[in-house]
């Protein structure tokens, strides 16, 4: 316990200074959220590369939470669906249902190239399409996988902080 305390004191703050608020258009509906964005992550058929980056976007270094974004356990609690990966045939209906379970106003963020336009999986037999083919998408974050900074930047467009 003492060693943990020493470690905490020695390490201090690891979060990097916040970069300036990204410009570019913000989805209109995000303004209603008023700086608080609860996120439900849906893996629609990802290779888990994006998940690793999302994990580090909410880790101590990038600290997505400081901008008012938070991952939650149920789509009922969420404002935003963070969808990764191509939408496979088996995940298309669950994704639709998850979208339906979110109370309005709700937004969808497609994370990674696969989610945007199927990436390398385009045309594969198990793929139902990109995220926008299944549910309406408001923000897209490119990259394969996107850097944590890019994810944080995309989320800041929603929180406005």
């Amino acid at each position: 316990m003492l060693s943990l305390w020493r470690k905490i004191r020695r390490t201090g703050r690891v979060a990097e200074p916040a970069p300036p608020l990204p410009d570019g258009e913000r989805p209109e509906r995000a303004a209603v959220l008023g700086g608080s964005v609860q996120i439900r992550h849906v893996d629609a058929g990802s290779c888990n590369g994006c998940e690793v980056e999302i994990g580090s976007a909410f880790g101590p270094v990038h600290d997505g939470e400081r901008y008012g974004a938070r991952l939650v356990a149920s789509p009922r609690h969420a404002d935003v669906l963070l969808v990764t990966g191509v939408v496979t045939r088996n995940m298309a209906e669950p994704l639709r249902r998850t979208f339906d379970a979110v109370p309005a106003p709700k937004l969808v963020v497609a994370v990674g190239d696969c989610a945007r336009d199927c990436g390398v999986f385009a045309g594969a037999y198990g793929v139902a399409g990109a995220v926008r083919d299944v549910v309406p998408v408001d923000v897209e974050i490119p990259g394969c996988p996107p850097r944590p900074e890019a994810i944080v930047e995309g989320l800041r467009k929603l929180t406005g902080r």
Binding site: I8, T11, G12, R13, V14, A15, A18, G34, G35, S36, Q38, P60, D63, E65, R66, Y67, G68, R70
Partner: peptide, 13 residues
């Protein structure tokens, strides 16, 4: 080691 969302965040939520 994080910065945190600020004391007012629960109210914003």
């Amino acid at each position: 080691g994080r910065a945190g969302a600020g004391v007012g965040q629960p109210w914003r939520d």
